[in-house]
Simulated assay, not measured.
Amino acid sequence: MSSGITVDERCISAFWELKGRREINAVVYRLSDTLDTVIVECQSNLTHDELLEVLPSYKARLIVYYLPFATAEGTRRSEIVLVSWFPEAAGSRDKLAYTRASAVLLDALDGLSIHIQATTLSELDYHRLVSQVADQP
C-alpha cells in the first residue's frame, strides 16, 4: 500500500552530498504544505548544538545527520542517522504524515539504516545518540 508521499529529487542529492563529499553534516527535511512531498528545508555543516537549535519546538522534521564518535574502546566511528523529530507540540496529523514520510525517506536513501525517533531535545543529547548508535551492528 502506497503512503501517497513522494521524495523530491533534491532530498536524494543532498543525502549523497552529505554521504560522499562530507562538506555538510546535516540535512533537515520537511513535508510540503500539502503533506505529500518530502523536501529539503536546509542542509549545512552544523555543530551538534546548532543542529538542536534549528529544530522547531512545535513542528515535526526529519533529519539526516552524520554522527562522528569514539567507541568505548577509543575507536573512531561515524554513522549516518535518520532522526524523526516529533515534538510534543506537533499536531497528530503532522506526526502521522511524518511517520509515513520517514519510512518513504528510508527507502529512498540508499545506505541509511539507523533510525531514531525523538520527542524532546534531551533525547537528542549527543551522548545519548552515540549510545544508541554505538549499539547498532
Rank of each mutant, 00 (worst) to 15 (best):
I5A: 00
V7H: 04
V7M: 07
V7L: 02
E9H: 06
C11S: 13
I12K: 06
A14V: 01
A14S: 14
A14G: 04
F15G: 02
E17S: 14
E17W: 01
E17L: 04
K19T: 12
R21A: 13
R21Y: 14
E23S: 15
E23C: 11
I24T: 12
I24A: 01
I24E: 13
A26H: 13
A26L: 10
V27E: 05
V27I: 05
V28F: 07
V28P: 09
V28C: 06
V28W: 01
Y29A: 04
Y29F: 15
R30F: 06
L31G: 04
L31E: 06
S32K: 01
S32E: 00
L35W: 03
D36F: 02
T37M: 12
V38I: 15
I39T: 12
V40T: 09
Q43H: 12
L46C: 04
T47I: 14
H48I: 10
D49S: 12
V54C: 10
L55M: 08
P56D: 10
S57L: 10
S57V: 11
Y58V: 01
Y58N: 14
R61T: 05
Y65T: 09
Y66S: 09
L67P: 03
L67Q: 03
P68R: 11
F69E: 06
A70L: 14
A70Y: 15
A70H: 11
E73H: 12
E73I: 07
G74E: 05
R76D: 12
R77H: 08
S78N: 14
E79P: 00
I80W: 04
L82D: 07
W85D: 03
F86A: 09
P87L: 02
E88Y: 14
A89K: 11
A89R: 08
G91A: 03
G91E: 05
S92L: 07
R93Y: 08
K95P: 02
K95D: 04
A97H: 09
Y98F: 14
Y98C: 05
T99A: 13
A101K: 01
S102N: 04
A103S: 15
L105A: 07
L105Q: 02
L106S: 11
D107G: 07
D107F: 07
A108D: 03
A108N: 07
L109D: 05
L109V: 00
L109Q: 01
D110C: 13
I114L: 13
I114F: 08
I114P: 09
I114C: 09
I114D: 08
I114N: 15
H115N: 07
A118G: 08
T120V: 04
L121P: 01
S122D: 15
E123C: 12
D125V: 05
D125I: 00
D125L: 05
D125C: 10
V130W: 00
S131W: 02
P137E: 06
P137H: 01
